Amino acid sequence: MQGTVDGFSYGTVTPVTAYVMACLGAALGLRCITRSLRNDKSWKPGWLALGAASIGCGIWTMHFIAMIGFQVEESRIRYDVGLTVLSLAVAIAVVGIGVLAVGYRGASTTTLVIAGTFTGLGVAAMHYIGMAAIRLNGSLRYEVRTVALSVLIAVVAATAALWAAVAIRGFLTSLAASLVMGVAVTGMHYTGMAAVSVHLHGAAGSPDVGDSAHSLLLPMLIGPVLFLALAGVVVMFDPMLVLGDGDWNRTASRRRGPGPRTEPPAWSGSAFEAPPKATDRRAYEPGAPGRRNG
């Protein structure tokens, strides 16, 4: 017996919210990766890790917000906790590998193809691991060609995201890229959901294992959403990301003024950038070697 599947039981609320979270994670991730490439003094591993975690959390949050709207009329749905947590770990890990690859090896065609394919397959794995966590009075079946299309969308989206991370620097262009990435990631999810059908097991009933969507997914979403909020705070308070390289340098020059200095400039770095050492102060003393006196 076929079950009646409804992927939009809350109307447009869940798909729109899922899209917004995918865009937010992509936007924060792109800005963090951009920041890692802007200044050699920055702690690159920290920015790359923050960017990868932001994108991974955005993708996972998008998936399970969308899943809150997924219902089968003839059966209640529950979720296996272990597989749900595993899907989050997979999302962050595979995006992290792809981001580290392009962050350290650059955006060569070979690197992008390999890293994008691996990351895209990982994102698809995250989606289907999340689907495997579903417990209901029946079994899920998939239409193979639609699944293949969803995997292809994931690979293309991941490759485009990694390319944008190293090739796009401006704020507005990064914002536009994140909106496109949100469309691609959300499109991958709903393409995968279009492949799903449910075969019910006899009489209507409820699974006796797992937690309901509201008791498991809503509390679990709090952590990734809070993480994205904290990542947003880090990005917002980093001067090089707010102003950009050129504007930041011009602002710093106006603050210093044209005259000679006898004190080192105030440190205005970020959470992933170390302050100057005390020994560096000698470079600003009058008569110091290499210092140009006014």
Rank of each mutant, 00 (worst) to 15 (best):
A167H: 09
V123E: 00
E143D: 14
T119A: 07
A157W: 03
T110D: 12
G130P: 10
G82W: 10
Q71V: 15
V144S: 14
G69Q: 09
A101G: 11
G138V: 04
V85I: 06
A148C: 15
L83E: 01
S108G: 13
G116Y: 11
V95Q: 06
A93Y: 07
E143G: 13
Y79I: 03
V90L: 00
Y128C: 04
A124H: 11
R145T: 13
Q71T: 15
T146H: 14
V156G: 07
Y142H: 15
R135L: 12
G106N: 01
G69D: 06
Y142V: 08
A107K: 09
I77H: 09
L86H: 02
S139Q: 14
D80E: 11
R141K: 14
L83V: 09
S139Y: 03
A167P: 00
Y79Q: 02
G106I: 03
A160F: 15
F118S: 13
I153D: 09
T111G: 03
V90R: 00
Y128R: 07
I129F: 15
A167F: 05
I97N: 06
A93I: 03
A101K: 06
E73P: 15
A148M: 14
A167K: 14
A164E: 06
L121Y: 10
A107I: 10
T117E: 10
A89G: 08
L152H: 11
A158K: 06
I114L: 11
I92K: 00
A132Q: 12
L86E: 02
T110K: 13
L136M: 15
T117P: 08
V90G: 00
A91W: 01
E73G: 10
L162E: 02
L83A: 05
V156L: 07
V155D: 06
I153G: 04
S75W: 02
G116R: 08
Y79V: 03
V147P: 11
L162C: 01
G122Q: 01
A107S: 08
Y128T: 09
F118D: 09
A124L: 04
F70Q: 04
Q71C: 12
L162T: 04
H127W: 04
S150Y: 06
M131G: 06
A125I: 03
A107Q: 05
L140V: 15
V151I: 10
E143W: 14
A160K: 14
A165F: 00
I92F: 03
Y142P: 10
G116E: 06
G103M: 00
A154Y: 07
S139M: 13
V147W: 11
G122M: 02
I77C: 01
A89P: 05
V144K: 15
A154C: 08
M126I: 03
L86M: 03
T84P: 02
I153C: 03
A160Q: 12
V94L: 05
G116A: 07
A158N: 05
V99T: 05
F118E: 11
R145I: 11
M126W: 06
R78P: 07
S87H: 02
G116K: 09
A161M: 12
G138R: 09
V94H: 07
I134P: 09
W163F: 08
D80T: 11
V123R: 04
A115W: 01
Y142M: 10
T111R: 05
I114T: 13
G69V: 08
F70K: 07
T111M: 02
R145W: 14
L149N: 12
N137E: 05
L100M: 11
